[in-house]
Design a binder for these strands. Structure first.
Lengths: 348, 348
DNA sequence: AATCGGTTTGCAAAGGATTGCAACATCCCG
DNA sequence: CGGGATGTTGCAATCCTTTGCAAACCGATT
């Protein structure tokens, strides 16, 4: 069927080795010969057989990506970044979705490892200890999760939250509710810490509202709690949750931002388009994806350095508050109603 | 590093061939031997090298999936269905996103074909003629696109639209606008045809509003045209567009469904959660994904039949109207304002 | 005891590309 | 003109599995 390297060799009147070299180590063959080989290869539509190459090089030319939920717009953006970077480097990409199930992560990791050179593990929900225990042959880059001694790409969530809190404080808000995401989310932990510190620094009250699934319905469920908490502003774990909040608030006839301000995180594309448009802490999703692949490729390039216990590379991206229309000056104090438990400047 | 079949053979005291057979053609080896082999394999953590196997069998054990836009919730649901089915059949899945660019489709198709046994091509934007010209070695199943002689999975869009129009007609609507999706979308064409016919059958006016990108902003842009058209109900190409419509209508202070009814298509998860919840034509997305893989696998199972010009298998799924809160009885005639061009019972 | 049918097993040949090593050619310098 | 350095090319081994074919083995029949 498909042309093999032998066919090209015959057509060009050289040996297989010369063809191989002409294609992958161009400066080792005579320019004239190379031209002949390239011409023959093109004419025959030759494309090296990946399996055969992989067999001898031990490399697959594939990368893997594991995400908690493809239908979460945050992750689909990350996927796009990973995809673009992988394609640019001539790698193919296996994508797997764990449906937010922690057990599936390890399973997929093990299943994938044999077929890829490296894996980007995005926002893993598996506990540190267990994750550390899993030994995989392929290089693994963590995303949105920091574990000592492991390469990773993260976002400065704490700083993002600081920007958010300072913005709200400047608008006169003195009591802010946080709608927490999954307990197993590292990013959520980082955000809580950042909020905690910033609340202390700015002298604002922080109300912590339970853990909610990072989906629209999570926000819907949290809205009533947020209202009852007496907070004049709500920061949501992510934009999807924030949209859920807005929806429920709208349904209850609560005006945003006049009666309550809402602030999201991630900056998914829909956030800019709702009415009113959502104020949010923007995270460079595509960039994170690209950075993850870049890190992975650098790891693959010198496995030597990796084995030698060079410090695990780490890349931290910046988060940026984007002020749109769901945040405004705090309503006059006597408009607020009390309720919800709170502690001055603490997360719980 | 990893154990090879030789290691297992040595450990079990048999030849490589016996190991191979014990694992993949169990009834060809003596039960006692098989047990010994299996034990050794497990002990050594042996897993066959996919590249080596692929080299000789000519199969990769991989499937490919090409979709226009991963961040469109419709497609991420399809992806989940495909993913689940592929995993269940012990295939790995390459996923590629074309960013709604038709040229990328053929490119990806060609790049992927060498590394997979089969490809699900979802909602391709490439014209029929060009698509027919591309010869790929791997089996290809079309999804949301019907081309004579090619295996495909589709949804009965026309029937879905019929349900939508009949629902609106029953509510007293006499003038319905359709916000069209991409010109290159086959589904969009099917929906237009279905609408056309149903409009004639029910004797309602149909206003065709240009082609819009199948995204939120498409709906935002279309909303003003819809209002100006004098229609009392709008059917959107898909839910995302419908959400855009709702957003803009809300911003303009138009009440849904009192002043105008809105109807989407796809039934993405967010549609059930907006306020008011979106009436929509539900499409079995996951099921479509599963069906695509099933078709692909059946094709792979008997390539003989395929070569013999057996009729290309086709599977058509049913669409189902889900009435929620964005459709209501038509406003009293004199409330309406004229405008927009229309033709009784036609699509253009 | 030789033969036969049926299982079970091993040998060895693919499959397509990469790569260490050796061979050869060429050229410069002494 | 010989020797060494440099630049090109080919040979052949290697990666790990699968599989056609033949050998070995078994009990049973003639």
């Amino acid at each position: 069927m498909a042309a093999t390297i032998r066919d090209v060799a015959t057509a060009a009147g050289v040996s297989q080795s010369t063809v191989s070299r002409a294609l992958s180590m161009p400066d080792l063959v005579n320019p004239a010969t190379r031209a002949r080989v390239l011409a023959a290869a093109r004419r025959l539509g030759y494309q090296p057989n990946r399996a055969a190459r992989g067999l001898i090089t031990g490399r697959t030319g594939n990368l893997g990506l594991i995400v908690p939920d493809l239908s979460n717009p945050f992750f689909s953006s990350v996927v796009k970044g990973v995809q673009a970077a992988a394609r640019a480097a001539d790698y193919s990409l296996f994508i797997a979705d764990t449906d937010e199930e922690a057990t599936a992560e390890v399973e997929l990791l093990l299943a994938l490892t044999r077929q890829v050179d490296g894996i980007v593990l995005c926002s893993p929900r598996t506990p540190d200890a267990e994750l550390a225990r899993v030994g995989v042959e392929s290089a693994v880059v963590l995303m949105n999760r920091r574990i000592e001694g492991r390469p990773s790409v993260t976002v400065d969530n704490a700083d993002g939250m600081r920007q958010a809190v300072e913005h709200l404080a400047a608008l006169g808000h003195e009591r802010i509710a946080y709608v927490a995401g999954p307990r197993t989310s590292w990013s959520n932990g980082q955000r809580e810490q950042g909020l905690h510190r910033s609340a202390e620094d700015t002298g604002t009250d922080l109300v912590h509202l339970g853990h909610f699934p990072p989906r629209f319905e999570g926000g819907v469920a949290a809205a009533d709690l947020a209202l009852a908490s007496g907070a004049t502003a709500v920061i949501a774990y992510n934009d999807v949750v924030a949209l859920g909040l807005l929806s429920r608030l709208g349904a209850r006839g609560v005006s945003v931002p006049d009666q309550i301000s809402v602030l999201g995180c991630d900056d998914i594309s829909m956030s800019a388009m709702t009415h009113p448009a959502l104020t949010t802490v923007s995270i460079p999703k595509r960039e994170a994806g690209r950075a993850g692949v870049a890190l992975l490729l650098s790891l693959l390039a010198d496995t030597a350095a990796a084995a030698e216990g060079a410090p695990a590379p780490h890349r931290e991206l910046h988060a940026q508050l984007i002020v749109r229309a769901t945040t405004g000056v705090a309503p006059h104090p006597d408009r607020r109603t009390a309720g919800g438990h709170s502690t001055k400047g603490t997360t719980r």
